[in-house]
Design a protein around this nucleic acid. Structure first.
Lengths: 260, 260
DNA sequence: CAGTGGTCTAGACCACACT
DNA sequence: GTGTGGTCTAGACCACTGC
């Protein structure tokens, strides 16, 4: 039953060969074990994980040590604590903070009141990864990927035009209908349909001018300045699982960022 | 000497009039007391604060409670812990993460290797706040403000053109020479010269086209897409102390953002 | 009521920095 | 060595949720 305790004092007790800078506190090791269970699918998004006391017993450590491990995982948005109820695996589905990665907000009006965007899927096809797509997704050039092109509109106004690239292996059988028909965030659909949970992302933002095709799709004049947002999203263990290149209209919306 | 202990059980013991949802854990109260000392200037940026044991004695609580308060302040980048040395008030000066609020990075080359920007101050004048500037700074229209216009260049290439508005009261006597001559981040200069420490900020980002004047200053063609970055920076207690409107060239640099 | 997370304490020991 | 933050433990009690 119980996993090996792995006390910190075990570090380098024997065989301290060569470069062994490794030292990790117990709670970090516990954090790693919990992470493994998350990756392995022992607890799925939305489900509750065992109580702190249970985990403490399972790992043969004190509750406080488990607590600190969970604290960090909660700070990274991998887990969500709810007093009196338990600790849950974070999800893009019923999270009250839906569309957590979408930072585009309307200039006026209360944020969040605009509801979900209207999606139009223009294209959804399988192809071989180009060099830059392969690099972003840690694949080899020519590996299978799925490409999706779509627009998002708010209140009937097309506002976002984006391309998504997904590893073909993990997203076998993704269809236009799935992309368009699912109610809720796309990342929630990825969790349900493909067991892929996006944990964090990095974005590179630039200002560009709309070309003819882009201008038509976004219903703006050619040459209109647009926000170019290139995103790489990662699952557990920093494995890249999505490359996304978006163009945002910023005449009625803006990209909001908090610095701290 | 010792401040009032203020145990949690004191909450609402008497006079629980009307809406009193207030309940804060002891460590939150301690956090508030430490925050007051920071605001009051008892410990200045770069200095060390008393040890956890000292603070525990001063506030009549256990070390663990002080620890949790400091943990949160450190997570908010107000304090910096250094094992074996002490806990220090964060500063924009000798922080290894200088230019913490500047998210523009070069497309190629290791981040941080580009060194500080070359500053050119174009203007530095006192005037009365317009309506929108007043609103952003929580002033009244017509209150005195200082406006600074400058460019930042990297490797000789002008890359940022920005206007700063600062409350006239807090920044009496700010000169062009100070803005241009100080070695290190502008926010570090604000700490040293005016005792104003910027703690967090919010940015609104858009894509815009360069007008004639802007194009000249940034050495680009008129109509070139630029990143428009409007920032409001806050001191302690969410008091806004700076409005900044910047235009970034994004042909050789990009705005980098991490989502988590 | 029982079970969960949240707070607080007190004490022991470890890792690191300075002197 | 002394003092600092960092880790770990064990136990007590509080606050919230749902039966």
């Amino acid at each position: 039953m119980a996993s090996s305790p792995a006390f910190q004092t075990d570090n380098g007790s024997a065989a301290m060969d060569a470069a062994t800078p490794a030292f990790s506190p117990l709670y970090q090791q516990i954090k790693g074990l919990i992470l493994q269970s998350l990756q392995g699918g022992e607890w799925k998004p939305g489900e509750s994980i065992p109580s702190e006391m249970d985990l403490a017993a399972r790992f043969r450590v004190s509750q406080g040590t488990v607590r600190k491990a969970i604290d960090e995982l909660a700070a990274e948005n991998l887990l969500v604590r709810r007093q009196g109820k338990g600790t849950f695996v974070a999800t893009h589905s019923e999270q009250h903070v839906q569309y957590r990665f979408l930072k585009l907000v309307p200039d006026i009006g209360d944020q969040g009141s605009e509801g979900p965007a209207e999606r139009s899927v223009l294209e959804c096809k399988r192809l071989r990864a180009s060099a830059d797509v392969a690099r972003a997704l840690a694949l080899r050039s020519g590996d299978a990927v799925v490409q999706v092109r779509r627009t998002l509109a708010f209140g009937g106004m097309p506002t976002i035009l984006e391309d998504l690239w997904l590893p073909g292996n993990a997203f076998k059988g993704l269809t236009s209908e799935q992309m368009a028909g699912y109610h809720g965030p796309t990342y929630a659909m990825f969790e349900v349909e493909f067991g892929v949970r996006m944990v964090r992302a990095e974005e590179k933002i630039r200002a560009v001018a709309a070309d003819a095709a882009q201008a038509t799709l976004l219903q703006v004049a050619q040459g209109t300045p647009l926000l170019s947002v290139e995103r790489v999203a990662y699952t557990y263990n920093d494995v890249p699982m999505e490359l996304r290149r978006g163009l945002y209209r910023t005449d009625t919306h803006h990209y909001r960022n908090a610095l701290s």
